[in-house]
Design a binder for these strands. Structure first.
Length: 674
DNA sequence: ACGGCTTATACG
DNA sequence: TCGTATAAG
């Protein structure tokens, strides 16, 4: 539910930039011969020509609508060009659109605080830039105003055709006796026009924009004149704009809440909201939403532009509608493997390009039970610490699924009562990674280390024992029961977590687990008390602090993982500042730099090769000495401790090992917190 | 049982 | 904290 944020006292200049039929533009850039033709992007589906997910404006004028099928579109507009979304691993692959979106963000981020709102939308806080312009070179002092700026739509301003209105716009922008708020918006107009031209020049993508004093109004405005135009909402125009605006057009009110306002309170326009007192609205919708509603009725929205250029999570999912619903564990496992692969690929890119690590893996599924009474019950979501490595994600995802399935099926286990087959059908699966944290700069080699150890040949394929999946006994039972030998040939049959076999020295690094938080799959199953009370039964799963870098059979309880350090680092105000301004200052690393190079396939291949080099040939000594030396001593020591686990048997009295290490590291970073 | 796939946010 | 619900594009 929406929540009210206090409005900042001073006027801000906020822009919302929205790419025009973005996927279509991406495809048209790839195939320029499609430019100007009615075009739509369809999802891989072969069913009735696929579903449209983006429609060019030429096609729209033919009456083609989104949420038409490809065949319908052909009927409405026979000459329409249908382009398919790329497919990888049997599912739609949106990566080209993601990186195209990143191109745009990296341009827009230059002029102020920037928030990536979606794959093709961005909010900008241009207050500082506008104030500077107003102070240094106000529009009235300019001898000419950008042509693009003159094409702006200014709400509340009459608009006759011809060049007349451009004059009006110029006058409005340059008006000497204007309100300061209007002057700031005038600067915003010029800045945004410039940015949009730059985006067009550098990416070939056109976009539309809204400029206003807050996000809500800017968003509203950006959609009012498309494509390739911009719209301004002066303060004086707000009331009139909102008064007649259908309530469901407001962001956040397009769904059930908006419907409730209509049907329960008889509210049809935002203006209608004004009649209701704040307390009245709170009675109906709670304290937060009530206040929020009261505010937006008046055009008040203090929501800030978040300085965030990157997504906060990654996910990969697929639906299996109707007859395609999955009915066997092995089929589910197959698809989880595909989804996990894609997810891992994206996590790897994020690590490489942005130096970020995700720490939680979540599985979502949707299902129904054909047999028996309540065929529709929610399939529970499950999450666990995310371990880097394709095979690990696949394995954890599958375990999460099985745990959720048991819960979903209730007391009736894999075998209901009789000889009935499985009663469940899976209609949707997704895996996602969240709680992503930045890694401090200067650790690029360490990251390569992470990378190398994460892409080992899969345990099950290589005959390696499964390492401590920390499946609780009960979950493991069902697991071993249900995992048929054909689906997991190399999987050990036994149920209890496999104890680790000591690796030879050369391979030792392969067995380090990056466990980002707590124990793996802790919620994967029914929280058995045994697991809590006898945590050391499988040496790797200790209760303790939870987060750890787990080097094989050692139980370094109390030893925080390096990721903890990163988290502390990220939590510190200093780090926040850095991530904000980071896009301009990039010392040794390219973090914050949105990988504008990823669209050059040659470079990508080079990077892949580089990775492969280190992937197989990595040795401890290959960590850049200079980089290593940059690290705080405590971190160096921690690194050494897991780089050479075999040389540091944890027994005896390793003076500063274990507990003391933990506290000293924590102490080191404590000052950063305040 | 079709629109498919992603991401974000608030609440309990 | 996790899991769910809602919303948006």
């Amino acid at each position: 539910m929406p929540v009210a944020r206090p409005e900042t006292s001073d006027a801000r200049v906020i822009a919302h930039v929205d790419m025009d039929c973005f996927y279509v533009q991406v495809e048209q850039r790839k195939q320029p011969e499609l430019r100007g033709l009615p075009t739509a992007v369809v999802q891989y589906n072969e069913w009735q020509g696929g579903a449209l997910i983006a429609v060019s404006y030429e096609a729209r004028s033919c009456g083609v609508k989104r949420s038409m099928r490809g065949e319908e579109a052909k009927a409405a507009c026979p000459e329409i060009q249908l382009v398919q979304v790329p497919v990888a691993r049997g599912k739609a692959d949106l990566n080209t659109y993601r990186s195209a979106g990143s191109e745009v963000v990296s341009i827009l981020a230059q002029s102020g605080k920037c928030e990536r709102a979606s794959i093709d939308e961005v909010y900008l806080d241009l207050t500082d830039a506008a104030e500077s312009m107003l102070a240094d070179a106000p529009p009235e002092s300019l001898e000419s105003i950008d042509e693009e700026a003159l094409k702006s739509h200014i709400l509340g301003m009459s608009r006759e055709d011809g060049d007349d209105f451009k004059e009006s716009v110029r006058d409005w922008i340059c008006r000497k006796d204007a309100d300061r708020r209007d002057k700031l918006l005038g600067c915003g107009i010029i800045i945004v026009a410039e940015l949009r031209k730059q985006v067009l020049k550098e990416t070939e993508f056109s976009c539309s924009a809204g400029i206003a004093h807050n996000k809500m109004l800017a968003k509203l405005a950006s959609g009012m004149n498309k494509p390739a135009q911009q719209t301004v909402v002066p303060y004086a125009a707000v009331q009139e704009l909102l008064s007649s605006l259908p309530i469901k057009k407001m962001k956040q009110l397009g769904g059930k809440l908006g419907t409730s306002l209509q049907t329960d309170l008889g509210i049809d326009t935002v203006g209608d909201l004004l009649q209701f007192s704040e307390t009245k609205l709170q009675e109906h919708y709670g304290i937060n939403t009530g206040t929020w509603l009261w505010n937006i009725a008046r055009g008040i929205s203090g929501e800030e532009v978040q300085g965030r250029l990157l997504p906060k999570s990654h996910g990969s999912g697929k639906t299996f509608p109707g007859p395609r619903a999955l009915r066997s564990l092995s089929n589910v496992q197959h698809w989880l493997n595909q989804l996990s692969e894609e997810l891992y690929e994206r996590l790897s890119s994020d690590l490489e390009q942005n130096k970020r690590i995700a720490s939680t893996l979540t599985l979502h599924a949707s299902a129904f039970r054909s047999k028996d009474s309540d065929s529709h019950k929610k399939f529970p979501s499950k999450s666990c610490p995310l371990r880097y490595g394709v095979a690990k994600i696949q394995e954890d995802a599958f375990n999460l699924f099985q745990a959720a399935l048991r819960e979903y099926m209730g007391p009736f286990g894999p075998k209901p009562q009789g000889n009935k087959k499985e009663t469940w059908r899976i209609t949707g699966l997704s895996v996602s990674a969240s709680k992503i944290v930045d890694i401090p700069s200067g650790t690029s080699s360490i990251m390569r280390y992470f990378q190398s150890q994460t892409t080992i040949p899969s345990c099950s394929a290589s005959g390696f024992p499964q390492e401590h999946v920390a499946v609780t006994p009960s979950a493991s039972e069902s697991c071993s029961e249900q995992k048929s030998a054909e689906t997991l040939p190399a999987m050990p049959e036994e149920d209890i977590t496999v104890t680790y076999t000591s690796p030879d020295l050369d391979n030792s690094y392969r067995d380090i687990d990056i466990v980002l938080e707590k124990f793996p799959c802790q919620d994967a199953s029914c929280q058995s008390n045994e697991a809590k009370e006898f945590p050391t039964q499988s040496g790797t799963q200790t209760k303790t602090i939870g987060r750890k870098i787990n080097n094989s059979k050692e139980k370094n309880r109390g030893m925080p993982s390096i990721v903890d350090i990163f988290k502390n680092y990220n939590a510190s105000p200093q780090a926040k500042e850095e991530t904000q301004e980071d896009s301009t200052v990039s010392l040794t690393s390219n973090r914050g730099n949105l990988s504008s190079s990823t669209n050059h396939s040659s470079e990508v291949n080079q990077e892949v090769e580089d990775r492969r080099d280190t992937e197989w040939g990595y040795k401890v000594g290959e960590i850049d000495q200079s980089v290593f030396d940059e690290l705080p001593y405590e971190i160096q020591r921690e690194l050494r401790s897991f780089l050479r686990p075999n040389k540091r048997p944890n027994s005896g009295k390793s003076k500063s090992g274990d507990g003391s290490a933990s506290s000293s590291i924590a102490h080191y970073f404590q000052p950063l917190k305040r």
